[in-house]
């Protein structure tokens, strides 16, 4: 049994590394971390001021993370979620409480290296107190078979003068089916930044729905998505900012690049219900700029190499 768990941990670490993570983080006592494979918690490290409370369930793990008031966590927390078999379901219910005057950065790698039919659902509740911050990066690695269905839903509140930044990146391997939803309220002086970067291929399906609600005076939101589509992939990006408080400011910036037979839709929705609020948007769907490609070709890259550089930079 112990050997099996060690093997599973090693395989998770291998996939973690393939997705760009640094394995050494999990052996550093100063770095808070958690490793979850399926519904098993394979490792956990807490640091002063940070409490990690995982509870295994039938299909996954419920995790409560609390950053205590007045604590700024020095090193970014490393999270590794994944399913190693070809088939399976993983449901992670995560609640993050960042108390007042507290802050943390976290990088989460979700790895499904052998996926043929995997469902990964992440229900995320984020509560950020006053004068606090939380930066969360989620990076996915799916292998090349496209058999993953990823459903991350995030709900949250950004407290007074606090900051929440969430970045979702899926550019290695196939996407499979992706359905992201964000719905975040921003209180007085708070700031929200949501970034989605996805490279869809073959028959991948991407659905992104991001919503920021500016409820407090001088609240701010930026919702930015970059989706590159190839083959017969399809995407729909709905970005919403509602501003109901005076001096609140929002901006939506969506760009989708289409190649081959892919299809993209972008729907920016901006709502203002206070005369002193302002929300702007920009959305662009198109092919790769031939001038960019030819510029890189004039430096000696082949067309395919140039496309890789342009797309890679766009999703960086």
């Amino acid at each position: 049994m112990a050997t099996k768990i060690i093997d599973e941990y090693a395989e998770m670490m291998k996939a973690y590394e393939q997705s760009g993570g640094k394995v050494g983080e999990f052996s550093n006592p100063n770095v808070p971390s958690i490793v979850i494979s399926g519904n098993k918690v394979l490792g956990k490290n807490e640091v002063k001021g940070l409490i990690i409370e995982p509870t295994p369930t039938k299909d996954g793990v419920d995790v409560k993370i609390t950053v205590k008031s007045g604590t700024k966590i020095l090193y970014p927390m490393a999270l590794c979620f994944g399913v190693l078999p070809k088939e399976g379901t993983q449901i992670i219910n995560m609640e993050a409480y960042i108390e007042d005057n507290a802050g943390m950065n976290a990088i989460s790698h979700c790895v499904f290296p052998n996926a043929e039919h995997i469902v990964h659902k992440m229900r995320y509740k984020v509560h950020i107190g006053k004068h606090s911050f939380f930066r969360y990066k989620e990076i996915h690695f799916h292998g090349d078979k496209g058999g993953v269905e990823v459903v991350p839903y995030t709900e949250g509140t950004v407290g007074e003068d606090s900051y929440f930044e969430s970045t979702f990146t899926l550019k290695e391997g196939r996407v499979g089916k992706l359905d992201i939803k964000y719905n975040v309220d921003v209180e007085k002086g708070g700031k929200l930044e949501l970034y989605s970067k996805v490279w869809a291929k073959d028959t991948d399906e991407v659905n992104i729905e991001e919503k920021g609600n500016l409820k407090g005076e001088e609240a701010k939101a930026l919702i930015k998505s970059r989706v590159v589509l190839e083959g017969n992939s399809h995407s729909k990006v709905v970005s919403v900012v509602n501003a109901s408080a005076p001096y609140s400011r929002g901006h939506v910036d969506c760009m989708e690049v289409v190649r081959d037979n892919a299809v993209a839709e972008a729907v920016p929705i901006v709502g203002v219900s206070n005369e002193l609020a302002k929300v702007t948007h920009e959305a662009a769907i198109g092919s790769l700029d031939s001038k960019e490609i030819e510029t890189l070709q004039a430096r000696g890259l082949t067309e395919e190499e140039a496309i890789k550089v342009v797309v890679g930079a766009l999703l960086k």
Partner: peptide, 24 residues
């Protein structure tokens, strides 16, 4: 020859209005 072949042969061009590259 293609643009790449010309560049590999030792020729290049500096555009009057160069392209922008987001993220690079």
């Amino acid at each position: 020859c293609s643009v790449t072949e010309r560049a590999k042969a030792g020729m290049t061009l500096a555009w009057q209005t160069p392209a922008n590259f987001e993220g690079l």
